[in-house]
């Protein structure tokens, strides 16, 4: 029982997850700055930002739904914290044993977006309203591709029967080799990277917020102080969660039985994924809203379906 509480509050969830996620976001800012030839902030910049935001005054708009406006951030934040407690980290943390945690993952991954939608909707700003509708469409666009990728993996692992246990997916890959090096899963891998960028709303999918020329800060526009800090932590935790999901789905390989070396390997893999996100952030411009949705509805969905068909064919023994 006490081990569970430590797992939830200190490692890998809770304190460690929040600090590590914030440092990851700062590292991404540094990488983008370096790719643009700038120096960039210090590696703990986002932690300072959060501390400062908690010390600031919180303003609530006159027309906002007070209660919803204040507590919407908690929704996504708690969802992400629970998710990190649930997910296994290959070689480091075994996660909560359950046979259907892939479905829980799919549900909980939508929580931050839903909390943005609730919070933005309650803030009674036209910018937030536009941003919320975009966020909703964006979520619909990438979520379908993500679900097909998850089903593909579940079918592949169960050899025709769906296996929805993340633990089993990790174990299967540890025995048979990571999906990253399996050609049948490559279309799904590319689709997953696109979905990752869309879910994190990094360029080229910086459509719903931080889109200064278009809708300013989107659903965050009316937020200040502590709720804003919670939103920032939520988006940072989402980055961490998605990088763990990436490692579970495609690259759960471990180096040795030693926990510490595996932990360093986990951090290295996270930073490699972060490097990809940083490079796309620095080299791509953002899509216009309609272009972004069209792209998301076409490319990742088709790639994921190609992968699904390949996997089904291999299960039937045709490839």
């Amino acid at each position: 029982m006490s081990a569970n509480i430590i797992n939830f509050l200190i490692f890998p969830g809770g304190v460690f997850a929040v600090l590590f996620a914030l440092i990851l976001v700062s590292l991404e800012r540094i990488l983008v700055a370096r790719l643009q030839g700038r120096i960039g902030p210090v590696f703990y910049q986002n932690i300072i930002d959060i501390v400062k935001l908690f010390n600031k005054e919180t303003l609530i708009p006159k027309d906002a739904k007070d209660f919803v406006f204040k507590f919407a951030p908690l929704f996504g934040f708690s969802g992400m914290l629970v998710l990190i407690y649930f997910l296994p980290i290959p070689g480091v943390y075994s996660g909560v044993k359950g046979d259907y945690d892939l479905i829980i993952l799919i549900y909980f991954l939508a929580l931050p977006a839903i909390s943005y939608i609730i919070g933005g909707g309650a803030s009674s700003s036209p910018y937030a309203a536009i941003s919320v509708s975009r966020e909703l469409k964006l979520m619909l666009a990438y979520e379908s591709a993500f679900i097909i990728i998850a089903i593909t993996i579940a079918l592949y692992v169960g050899d025709g029967k769906g296996v929805f246990s993340l633990k089993k997916i990790v174990d299967y890959q540890l025995q048979h080799g990571a999906f990253l090096f399996d050609w049948k899963m490559w279309p799904a891998f590319v689709a997953f990277l696109i979905v990752l960028l869309a879910a994190l709303e990094k360029p080229p999918f910086e459509i719903a917020h931080h889109n200064d020329a278009d809708i300013m800060d989107g659903y965050l526009i009316e937020y200040s102080g502590a709720p804003l800090a919670l939103f920032e932590i939520t988006s940072a935790l989402k980055l961490l969660v998605l990088s763990i999901v990436f490692q579970i789905f495609f690259w759960p390989s471990t180096l040795s039985g030693d926990l510490f070396i595996n932990f360093l390997w986990f951090i290295l893999k996270t930073i490699i994924l972060l490097g990809f996100i940083g490079i796309t952030h620095a080299t791509f411009a953002s899509y216009r809203a309609d272009q972004g949705f069209k792209f998301l509805l076409k490319v990742p969905l088709v790639l994921a379906i190609i992968s699904l068909i390949l996997v089904l064919l291999s299960i039937k023994g045709l490839i």
């Binding site: 700038r38 960039g40 902030p41 009316e222």
Partner: peptide
């Protein structure tokens, strides 16, 4: 512009006055 980077001082341009210091 990379030459006068204010982000190294910790500054960040925000899109809303409610975030601003």
């Amino acid at each position: 512009i990379p030459r006068y980077d204010v982000e190294r001082l910790g500054c960040r341009y925000t899109g809303s006055p409610k975030h601003a210091d």
